[in-house]
Design a protein around this nucleic acid. Structure first.
Lengths: 129, 129
DNA sequence: GTAATTGCAAAAGATTTGCCCCATT
DNA sequence: AATGGGGCAAATCTTTTGCAATTAC
C-alpha cells in the first residue's frame, strides 16, 4: 500500500462521514469540513473522498433517483431506502433473504465482491400527505 | 399526459435501447443513432432519453462502480451485474428471494415503488485471468 | 398553421488535475 | 530535508438549456 500522511483535512473528512449514518455530497462534506477547517478546498475534499474510497473506508452511493454522488463511511452491509418524494436517503437493514443468496445461481457470475440494494418508495412522513 | 410527437429521432433511440439487453451511455446511444441519422445531436439524445424515462419506457442505471449514467429500455424486473474488472454490465434474474420480500419489514418504509439491485464482482472471463 | 422537436452552441454542474507552496514524517 | 498533500484555478466531462429553424400532426 502506498505511503500516506495523516493530515488534518483527511481526519476531519473521515470524521464527518463517520459521525452518524449520513449520506453527503462532496459539496456538503466540504461545507461541513469548513466549520472546522475554514480554508479547506473542494478539490481536497474530492481527493480525500477518492482516497478513502480506495482504502475501503468510504463508499460512493449513486441512486438512479437523486442527482449526484453521495458518500458514506463503510460500515456493516445495509441497503438504502430513497423516498421518491422528499429524496431523503436512509439506511435500512439488508434483508436476510438477500444476504443469504448464493449468487452464482444468478447466472454468469464468477465471484461477488459487493452488493448495492436501493429501495425506492415513500417514507411514512410523505405517504400521509 | 402531455402531447408528444413521433419523431424519427425518438423512434431510432427507442429502437436502439430495445434491441438486445444493452446498457448504453448517452454518448453511445448518440453514436449508434448516427449510423441511421447522421446529424442527430447529443442534446436531442439526452432530451429523448429523459422523455422516454418520464414515459416509463426507459430507465437510468447508475452503479457506484462505472463512471456515468447508462440507459436501458424498461423490461421485466431484473438485477444488474457489474464486472469490477472489465466494467461490463449484464442483466441477471432478480432472485426470487428479493422479489418476495415484504418490504415494510425493512424499517421506515410506507410503500415501495421500485428496486435497484446491483451485484459487483468478477465475470467468468475476467476471473480466469 | 401551430406547437413540439431538432441542431447547434453556450451554459451549468460535477469532478479532476497542474502547479507551487506548506506540513508531516 | 524530503515528499505527500493542500489550496487555488484552470481544465474536463457530463448533462441541460436558449433559440431559430424544421417538421409532425
Amino acid at each position: 500500500m502506498k505511503k500516506s500522511r495523516n493530515t488534518r483535512q483527511r481526519g476531519v473528512i473521515l470524521g464527518i462521514l463517520t459521525a452518524g449514518a449520513v449520506h453527503l455530497t462532496a459539496e456538503e462534506v466540504c461545507l461541513e469540513a469548513r466549520k472546522i477547517l475554514p480554508s479547506i478546498s473542494l478539490g481536497t475534499v474530492y481527493r480525500n473522498l477518492n482516497f478513502l474510497r480506495e482504502q475501503g473506508l468510504a463508499r460512493e452511493i449513486r441512486s438512479s433517483d437523486a442527482g449526484c454522488t453521495r458518500f458514506e463511511a463503510t460500515r456493516d452491509p445495509h441497503a438504502h431506502f430513497h423516498c421518491r418524494r422528499c429524496h431523503i436517503v436512509r439506511d435500512i437493514p439488508l434483508p436476510e433473504a438477500v444476504a443469504g443468496i448464493r449468487w452464482p445461481e444468478a447466472g454468469p457470475i464468477a465471484s461477488v465482491s459487493s452488493l448495492d440494494l436501493h429501495v425506492m418508495g415513500d417514507c411514512p412522513g410523505c405517504a400521509d400527505t
